[in-house]
Write a protein that binds this DNA or RNA. Structure first.
Lengths: 211, 211
DNA sequence: ATCAACCCTTGACGGTGTCAAGTTTCTCGC
DNA sequence: GCGAGAAACTTGACACCGTCAAGGGTTGAT
């Protein structure tokens, strides 16, 4: 803290602002995010962020890009290091995805918010593609194992949608907004467990039709 | 239009504001939503909405509640009127869900935005429960048909997550943000078709394990 | 030592949400 | 019919926000 009381030049403001922004979103939600508050936390003037990111959209796009970078790192690590068959490994990818999203709500709250970020930003697209490639490659391996006829793109969309939806609905589910059974087994499991269960259900559906 | 040039009392301002708010969100996104702009479009002063909804959170919560009301109406109608087996009827529910979301982006953009709405609001919770009940009942029927051991709550979470995720990822998929195959069959189908396909894949996974 | 490029600050502008107070209209018991 | 009180809406003010223009401090190559 004593060292951070730097000079006129901050030295690492770009990185600090991205971190502060993610923290602030995690605390107060993307809705009541404030560029000036981020600057305040970083100890710089209210207009400093503009120099690095242009405007608020630029900063949030950078946060979203960071999110995809972390997502790629975690999911590819899960795929590489998990022992077992391809289904176990895919389930681990799903688990890694939702667990990262829950652990880093600030980052992941903005990755698909097209009203807040610039989804044509090149750096953003690069990281999004890299993250998508992990899932795509995993599903190619799954297809080889269980169903060569599998539509990879549709399967990928299904998996990603289900995980993203799970994250989005999680808080409502936990708050029992939906009138679930008296004590459904759903609430007994962590979101990571549910991600694995859902993935296995999806893969079961990926098998060839027995017609 | 001549008639709407009412008196000092608007007469139906509550309803008008909810409609205008949904329109504005559909146009500019929930991020750059403005209470004053809504008031402007409704032809009232900037503080008029506060009288009906308290603050911006109150108005957006009302919009989200309307969204659930419409969702319940459409999905239950789809379930009731569709001919065929339970799987066909469930697929119709899924299709109705995503098609309504695409047709009413303003309403559905806020239903799960807990940073913008008050998800403890009683009216909101009532409508959310009613909408959830349609899916729950449908899955009970599916379970009777294909797998009495099915975990209804987990299946419901899976279905809803997948549909919600599909809606969220749809625009990215269409913009080909993700580096999909040269011309994957995914893009050839409407989002409603994909909702049906995904639902059928999910149901296939709901069958008992053949162990 | 100098000068240009860079990093950040200051100050101003219009727009926004919210609050308090005031004005107009409606409602309902008499 | 009428008057009092409730309801609906307006007005004005305040602090905060994002963005822009202008300027001051710092660095590093020459």
């Amino acid at each position: 803290m004593a060292v951070t009381e730097r000079t006129y030049h901050h030295g690492d403001l770009n990185h600090t602002l991205r971190m502060s922004a993610a923290d602030l979103i995690a605390e107060r939600g993307a809705g009541s995010f404030s560029l000036r508050e981020v600057a305040r936390r970083a100890g710089v003037s209210h207009a400093a962020p503009a120099h690095h990111f242009g405007d608020v959209t630029g900063l949030l796009t950078a946060v979203a890009t960071d999110a995809f970078t972390h997502l790629h790192a975690r999911t590819s690590a899960a795929w590489e290091t998990t022992r077992g068959d391809v289904i176990d490994r895919l389930a681990a990818v799903g688990r890694a995805y939702v667990e990262l999203a829950v652990a880093n709500p600030g980052h992941c709250a903005v990755i698909f918010r097209h009203d807040l970020i610039d989804s044509d930003d090149p750096a953003y697209l690069v990281q999004a593609d890299k993250a998508y490639a992990v899932l795509n490659d995993a599903l190619v391996a799954v297809a080889e194992e269980i169903n060569p006829e599998l539509d990879i793109d549709l399967a990928a969309a299904t998996c990603w949608s289900a995980m993203q939806g799970l994250i989005e609905l999680d808080s409502l589910m936990q708050k029992r907004v939906f009138d679930q059974g008296a004590d459904g087994p759903t609430t007994e499991h962590s979101i990571g467990d549910r991600a694995e269960q859902i993935t296995r259900t999806l893969v079961a559906g990926f098998h060839p039709n027995r017609a």
